[in-house]
Design a protein around this nucleic acid. Structure first.
Lengths: 282, 282
DNA sequence: CGTAAACCTTATTGTTACAATAGGGTCAAG
DNA sequence: CTTGACCCTATTGTAACAATAAGGTTTACG
């Protein structure tokens, strides 16, 4: 039952480290009540436990040491509820951010699973796809012109827009390009438009377009250089099987693979064309 | 449409700062594809946007730059789902922590409101108090012996126990001491026991005690030095009004005021004694 | 009384992901 | 040829300590 508690005991009593006490002393948050002038040994008063309790309490509520110093300096009890409110709001913000992060992680996880289950590349399939919503952006330049460069620039513009509109980051992976029906019917891969897939419940009048539920023929492709070849495979399939192109050609990025620094963007794309049975062949 | 993108343009294209690109270069996360050997000017390839996208994506999911470097170094796509899972767990932990913080803040806010509404000090009141649960700890030394010192030491022991049992931090403020009925009936304030109020739904067999719902006389007190005087006021009141002490005397800390560094613990206490009408006076 | 263990001191470095300087060289347009 | 826009490197600062290094002090024990 000492009056003067040396730093080690004080640390143990309060379940903190000696460094922490040193630190608090250095920044002037809590200094020992007595310092031996010869040895510079720090001695605390047992009453200072109350202060440490308060510091720990504030710390637990997420206040910084500097904010505590300010509180200590003000000595104004009435300013406290405002601080508490601000802190609660700050925490809410952080929680929202974490929730978004988690959502993004889950989407990434799903994407990975999708990637693992992707069927063979270059094999034509037929399937029914549900209604999807996209946010379209017209970059005014044909992304199939330059080798990738135009695409990169336009993609950047799309993402800038998405940032401005505060789309969730998880959308950023689900992009694609559209080649309008007129063009693809002439076996021409030309497109100035790229898009970002958005949730079905996502509302934003400008630029939002709907890809209706429909019967599609599709093919998976894992490199830009193959897109044209595979797209023609689709068209061949359509013609050989008495189908007819019923809408715009979509090149949807299913998974974007981690890019290993040096190399260019690598992704798995699902090329798709909505089809219907040829009306005059019936 | 340049092939070699200088750092300023690269920064603008990707909505990041030049410093960030400098930093990524320095730590070896992403280096420009070309550096002018004479001027040391950095030039990026437009393809490196893909890498920046990936970095931003990982960053948004809460990975550190070092972790990204590791991912880049491994080039192992299969290690990714594990990383994602770990990250999700990490985020869950953070969210739990934040939720606890928020709860603590709300309790603090309530405490402050309580403080603002506390009636006059030193005035005896009668009220009915509902059932409460407490976690009791016997420090084996009378906290009324030394001036505050014993209390501080025992309080520290109680909090250590609470830490071990992982009580929510918000409990740490709601403490108090008990003087058993036999003692208070002889007008003696002696107590070796202090407690922590816990939620009604809090279960933990050891040390948990119940303060039953009862009629109480109570008085508010804002300094240790007044406790005895006020406690005697309560007893006087009981005797003058034909009441009888019906249980243990409780000194409950209602609000612990922020402690301004130098001074000792300051708190508002509610002294309370359960009472009943004197049976032989009926 | 000597010594070793336990305790204390100050000072430095490291952590994260950059921002903000300072001080100086380079480039493009007029 | 100059001016403004751009680029470079290097240092410092941020938050809250942890981990060390190098050294002095105290205490317990034989």
């Amino acid at each position: 039952m000492q009056e003067k508690v040396p730093i080690g005991k004080m640390a143990k009593l309060n379940n903190i480290s000696i460094q922490t006490l040193h630190h608090y002393d250095k920044i002037g948050l809590l200094s020992p009540s007595y310092i031996d002038p010869e040895t510079n040994y720090r001695f605390y008063s047992i009453k200072q436990c109350a202060c440490l309790d308060f510091i720990k309490y504030l710390k637990y509520m997420g206040f910084t040491l500097q904010e505590m110093k300010d509180v200590f300096a003000e000595k104004d009890v009435d300013s406290i509820p405002k601080l508490l409110d601000e802190q609660i709001q700050l925490i809410d913000q952080k929680m929202n951010k974490l929730a978004q992060m988690k959502k993004t992680l889950k989407v990434a996880d799903e994407n990975y699973r999708t990637y693992m289950q992707i069927p063979k590349m270059g094999v034509v399939e037929r399937n029914y796809l549900p209604k999807r919503k996209i946010y379209c952006y017209d970059g005014k330049k044909d992304i199939y012109d330059d080798q990738l460069e135009t695409y990169e620039y336009i993609l950047r513009e799309l993402r800038d827009l998405a940032l401005i509109h505060q789309f969730p980051t998880s959308y950023f992976c689900n992009v694609g390009s559209i080649t309008r029906m007129e063009s693809i019917k002439q076996r021409k891969l030309t497109s100035t438009e790229i898009f970002m897939l958005v949730d079905a419940d996502f509302f934003n009048a400008k630029g939002i377009e709907v890809l209706p539920a429909h019967e599609y023929v599709s093919i998976y492709c894992d490199h830009f250089s193959q897109e044209e070849e595979y797209a023609f495979k689709l068209i061949d399939y359509i013609e050989e099987n008495q189908f007819e192109i019923a809408g715009d050609y979509i090149c949807e990025v299913i998974v974007e693979l981690p890019c290993w620094t040096q190399y260019e963007r690598q992704m798995i794309m699902k090329l798709q064309i909505p089809v219907k049975k040829k009306s005059n062949s019936a």
